[in-house]
Every structure is written in C-alpha cells, then in structure tokens.
Amino acid sequence: MTQDSKFHHGDVSTDAKPIIEMIDIEKHFGNIIALAGVSFDVKPGECHCLLGDNGAGKSTFIKTMSGVHKPTHGTITIDGKPMNFSSPRDAMEAGIATVFQDLAMIPLMSVTRNFFMGREPTIGRGPTKRMDVQKMNETVVEEMRKMGINLRGPDQAVGTLSGGERQTVAIARAVYFGARVLILDEPTSALGVRQTSNVLATIDRVRKQGVGVVFISHNVRHALAVGDRFTVLNRGKTLGTAKRGEITPEALQDLMAGGQELAQLEGSLEGTV
C-alpha cells in the first residue's frame, strides 16, 4: 500500500490547540528508565501514531497519559491546564479512554459487565439505584455489531471469547467512552482482515467527530492508513515527529526498527516485510 489511503485525513491546522499535551515525561521504575523525556500532544480530530520497537516505552507512555502511572518527571496538560491524574478513573473523567495492550478484561465476567466496568449506567434513585441491565446488554450487542462482531450473547464470559473478539470488546468499550481522547495500544494485533478494516474505519469516524486518537502499531501500513502525525520512540526517547506526507513508508519503517538492521533483513526477505 502506498501513502494514499482510502480515508480523508483530519485536516488539522498546525495551530490548533492540543487537547492533551505531555511535556518532557520521564518514568523510572526503580533503576530502570523506561521514559527519558518524551513530549507528545494530541489535537482534536487527528490521529497521532506512536511507533517504535519492542520495549521502546510506548505502553509505558500511554499509561502515564491514561492515569495508570504517575510520571516521575514532566507535566500533563489538558486544554492548557496542568492535570495530575491519581488514577485511571480521573483520566476517564477527563474524557480519555484507552485500549490497553493487555486489554484490561476480566475473563470470569460477562461481556456486558466488562464493557461497563467502572462506568455502569443506572436507573432508579436512592436504595433502588441499580444497573440498567437491559440498556447495558442492548448497547453491548449494538456496539459490537458496529465493529463487525456478532456476539452469541452479551452474558457470555469474556474468558470464552476468541482473542480477536476480546480485543474488539476492548476497542468498542474505549470508542464508546472515549469522549475526547481515544488511546489504542496495538488494537489490531489479533484481528482478522474485516475487523482490522473496521477498526481503522472507526478511528476515522471518531476523528471526524473531533476526538483525538493515539494509535500504537507495529504495522506501518495500518499506521500510514490512518495516521496524521507519526512520533517514533526509541529506548525511551523520541526520534522525532513527522507529518503525513513528509515521510516515506520506507523511512518510517526504518525509524521504527531503530535503523540499520531492517534494511539488511529486507534484502534477504526480498522486500516482504
């Protein structure tokens, strides 16, 4: 595939104000430095791809963005105001929804219970305030259908779903709750062709609604298909940010792999990677 994708890209003007801005983020785990000063921002209506080799620090970075980790150093601002997330719940209340690499699903619980975990819609008030089970079930079936998966039943335990189905539940959940920023950490790693194209189309759809999307992928074609900007991480640092059209797929792929090695490999594999 070339850079020409089937999507209209977000025509984000360069001076649009970012929704969330991460400035000089560092994260240390004991003596391990996972992030050594990464700056990154997401504007409304754009898809900002975060790329990089295994262990580059992508997941750690988006976890600081979604309130799981507290940065050791650096500031996070939302709409220009400094924020201090003390839990993922805080980040969610700020409109940030995340598909984590490990999906954050609970196998023993039903699809519906997983989908609304932490954000259950209720009916009634006072002591009769209870989950709106019917609405929950209907929403789940509907949202999953939009992603191209027909659930056998919303009360099925997540542990009995296939890997890709499980990933789709996590994506559908984040899309449903991602009011302002949607973070996807390798959301398509287990997906079939149809579901992958659905996910890319969904990214495009929510972007049009003004949501800022952060998309992590090891697949250059997927990234190029939807990305407006590309930031490459390497060993906890940014190698730079490129706008769509400013960089060739080959150059991007080399950057993602950290340079040299891939070029040599490519020869022996005859350009199949």
């Binding site: 839990s87 719940r89 954050a104 609970i106 023993l108 619980m109 997983n114 975990m117 932490g118």
Partner: peptide, 16 residues
C-alpha cells in the same frame, strides 16, 4: 467482581 477477578485490569478500567 471486577476487583476480585483482576484488580489490575479493574483499576485500569476505572474501578476504584
């Protein structure tokens, strides 16, 4: 149920 099933996943999903 979520906290007992996987406290990490629950917390990442916004369960206190």
């Amino acid at each position: 149920f979520a906290a007992g099933g996987d406290s990490n996943a629950a917390s990442n999903s916004g369960v206190p």
